[in-house]
């Protein structure tokens, strides 16, 4: 029995028996990161891109292109301020914009459940065209699959997009430096609360509208104005907090955020108070953080305020351990990924 063990391929992270995917794996929080690190990164061993970034940068024939993909599984499909179609166009446009790119073209893949009303599908298709026209991006390729009744949720859409990178220098967490200013493009929490109020029939009056919007215009203006953007990130699922933690970790730097500087509209604050949710973790579809040299903060803020009046300087980057601390009334604490989606509290 002293023979050397025979060779057998070993999985780098042995599976625990019975482990399955949970809903939390798709929430953008800790479980999503665990999934990327334990399944995708080891499998995509030769992938050199940052898997937590919004898109990949490719050099093809001298052109610098951004390439990204996203799948949209929102419920309900129609919500105050938008629908799955506007989301599918704007979301992917925004991922390109966050790479410092001008969006050029999108593909769209539809997974449709048997029995889904054609009238609704037409509405979604028109929303997509309207969003694409408003953005100046072309819908150039598509695919349609139909799954049996009960095996889909009405409609899922995947969009992939390419854009031309126009930022002269890379826009990535690696360029974040101590002394950089952290700007937020507007008030947070609208999309998550709009979808939750529609899904759970909460009936806020007046209704909270999703902030779903394309973000390429403010980004391109910042670049035109000569702002040396170091990093951009849209604050989608997981909200502002998750976006900041991801950047701090990738950059290996500390961020100090002033709680009182983070704009939250009164209806969103009220809804979050009632439900016991933290707006820092509520999803947005039309807000981003921009990290840029401190001395350019004022100029950049005035550009952002041309698009959203309540854009704000919310904090600064410092040398120090990679963490995001939030200054509160009595002290400060470090923001952490949530393990899964926030659930409303009992009292």
């Amino acid at each position: 029995m002293n023979e050397a063990p025979s060779f057998s391929p070993v999985c780098p992270t042995p599976d625990k028996p019975g482990e399955t995917v949970e809903l939390g794996h798709g929430s953008g929080g800790r479980l999503t990161h665990d999934l990327i690190e334990s399944v995708f990164r080891p499998a995509f061993a030769h992938c050199e891109t940052d898997l937590t970034h919004d898109g990949a940068e490719l050099e093809i024939g001298g052109a610098r292109l951004a390439f990204t993909t996203d799948s949209y599984v929102v419920q309900p499909l129609f919500f105050p301020g938008g629908d799955i179609g506007t989301l599918a166009v704007n979301g992917t446009v925004n991922d390109l914009a966050m790479c410092g790119a001008r969006p050029l073209a999108l593909s769209c893949g539809f997974v449709i459940e048997e029995g889904y009303p054609l009238a609704e599908l037409r509405r979604v298709a028109h929303s997509m065209q309207a969003a694409a026209s408003a953005t100046g991006v072309r819908l150039v390729a598509g695919d349609t699959k139909v799954v049996e009744r009960g095996k889909g949720d009405g409609l899922y859409i995947n969009t992939s997009g390419v854009g031309e990178i126009v930022a002269p220098l890379p826009v990535a967490p690696g360029r974040v430096r101590p002394g950089d200013a952290i700007l937020l493009s507007g008030d947070i929490g609208r999309h998550g609360m709009a979808v939750m109020s529609a899904r759970e029939d909460l009936g806020f009056d007046p209704p909270i509208l999703s902030d779903c919007a394309a973000l390429h215009s403010p980004v391109l203006r910042l670049i035109e104005e000569g702002i040396d953007i170091h990093c951009l990130r849209d604050c989608t699922r997981g909200g502002l907090a998750t976006a900041l933690i991801e950047i701090a970790r990738s950059a290996g730097l500390a961020m100090k955020i002033e709680q009182n500087a983070v704009p939250v509209s009164e209806p969103v604050r009220g809804a979050c108070e009632i439900l016991g949710l933290d707006p820092l973790y509520v999803a947005n579809e039309g807000r981003f953080v921009a990290i840029l040299p401190g001395e350019q903060a004022e100029a950049a803020l005035s550009v952002l305020r041309d698009f959203e009046q309540n854009a704000a300087l919310i904090g600064m980057v410092e040398a120090g351990p990679e963490a995001v601390s939030l200054r509160t009334i009595g002290g400060s604490y470090a923001l952490d990924f949530l393990s899964c989606e926030q659930l409303p509290r009992i009292c």
Binding site: T328, I329, G330, G331, Y333, I346
Partner: peptide, 22 residues
Amino acid sequence: RHGIDQMLPSGITLLHGPGCPV
């Protein structure tokens, strides 16, 4: 969350009771 205990003089200790029904 708000750091209220950190604002108090050092002699005041806040003990956390059993009041989370969940």
